[in-house]
Nucleic acid binder design. Sequence first.
DNA 1: TTGTACGCGTTATCAG
DNA 2: CTGATAACGCGTACAA
Lengths: 334, 334
Amino acid sequence: MTARPTMSDVAAAAQVSVKTVSRVVNGETGVHPGTAAVVTAAINALGFRPNEVARSLRPGYSSQTLGLIIEDLGNPFYSQMARGVEEVAREHGFMVISGSSEEEPERERHLVQSLLRRRVNALLVVPARGDHTYLSRELADGTPAVFLDRPPQNYVADVVVLDNRGGARTATEHLLRQGHRRIGLISGFEEVYTGAERLAGYREALMDAGFPLDPALLRVNCHHPAEAALATEALVTLPDPPTALFTLNNRITIGALQALWTRKAATALVGFDDFELADLLPIPVSVVRHNPVELGRVAAKLVFARLAGDRQPPQTVTLPVQLEQRGSGEQRIH
Amino acid sequence: MTARPTMSDVAAAAQVSVKTVSRVVNGETGVHPGTAAVVTAAINALGFRPNEVARSLRPGYSSQTLGLIIEDLGNPFYSQMARGVEEVAREHGFMVISGSSEEEPERERHLVQSLLRRRVNALLVVPARGDHTYLSRELADGTPAVFLDRPPQNYVADVVVLDNRGGARTATEHLLRQGHRRIGLISGFEEVYTGAERLAGYREALMDAGFPLDPALLRVNCHHPAEAALATEALVTLPDPPTALFTLNNRITIGALQALWTRKAATALVGFDDFELADLLPIPVSVVRHNPVELGRVAAKLVFARLAGDRQPPQTVTLPVQLEQRGSGEQRIH
DNA sequence: TTGTACGCGTTATCAG
DNA sequence: CTGATAACGCGTACAA
């Protein structure tokens, strides 16, 4: 109930000046041990805790805070990214303020502004769709920004992404190598960067191998497992059905699996994104997996390099992904 | 690269005093429209953004920030809680600084101190094990704290928990009603609050129904799915094996399921905690489910009630859980 | 070894 | 309607 004690409260209690208290608090040299003891006693008696807000207002000091904007804190992929960011931040004595953009551009802008008003040292952003030129104005003072999972539109800065295209190529080539020629593809939002890249990787693999891409095998805009299940159902009941499926994210993979199980279809399947239980299912699911925590870590390290004065041109880091062969993707065509 | 412009920069550019700029920025009445226009123009020209840090230093103002300490931001259960907290915070114009305690008491203390130094308005904490009397000193000024998922030890404050005991009772009674008399139980850390409560619920249900508790059917301290699988294996191969299993958290449920599948055992199963795919598996898994987002929301609302001046004695809110009958728990004994 | 003045960016007070 | 001044809590520069 009492207001939090300040340095001058401590100074008054210890019968010294605020500056002496400051010296003790910051462990500066040149304080008489006796005085220091008195001050320390007063600090403990009053329960004084230095006010980081006041400190960060002073020139040369900063809030020691990172701003993190992601699509949804509750989504495991992003929350693991956040975890990676937090780890690196802690190593530097920083804390993280985070917010969910809900993939809405206005919300993102609002969050950017709120965070900058709080004078975060840097921004880490999973960019929502839409134009990002507004950032030039917001970050004109040199506050670094690093983008995660996808690049922003019309703003040049450091970006850390997964090798979406490469992973999709690998998955598709793997299925081709098992003898599959008709490989169905189910994707989520078409316009999202990661989805587009993965689709491109699938296309490239087919082209390079000299096989045609049958548009009838493509199902896009499946946002829920249920829609993916329907799409799978539709593909499997085609006159000339695919012998394998490539599902572009884990929600889709889950929906597809359910449809395949109820149909007892022996269609091979490789999914992008790992998921819990994938390796424990009766037929373990082959996936292209990656490391969201590492993504967060790498982005945070980039941020701290910038804060340390790194003036290199903005770079794009592409993190490798791994094809995990567990069974569902290794069913050869007879 | 330029330092961020301040109010006095704007004032100079607009040929007015800082106070006038302040008035315009805060939309105060009593400013000549002409002057306001000039000031607004200067603000836009310079890209001025008010410094919330400086503002929060002033008496009567605050950082408009909540501190959140959870076990692990990367864990879906906790990250969804964080999501709920964030939602309510945003409604109040607050932001959230979060940190992971890793279930280590010293880390928690360190986080508490860091957050209080940053003058967060309130603390939301998933308490690590160990004594929490230290909080009396830290929060002597009246900064509210609310605890999530489990109560702290030796500190009285608002707490929001799930109905762990009731959920476990319900699950056990459900299995008893299906005719099961030998119900195996697999749990994680024995000393964790939630686990202890769930175990107690199981015990109570058996006692109340007048059935003995066979210690041979209890397996504790399974921290990974693999350990749970081994425990399941051991239970199923008992001379007089259980006909049903009650698994105390989702990691354990997953491990148990795998063991049952490989063994093709027809043991009934109910798990505490829902998990992705639970409803999509060939035999859908019955679970006691709950709503982590709601838990976060309720806790945050409690915090804001306290911040608004609510002086009621600390309360414990117990959130209901639901038994979701999907199939695995409804296999009657022949 | 210790203390005094000043400034960080903002807002409240009170005068013009 | 507008502005000068003090203050928020702390640390730097410079004395004493």
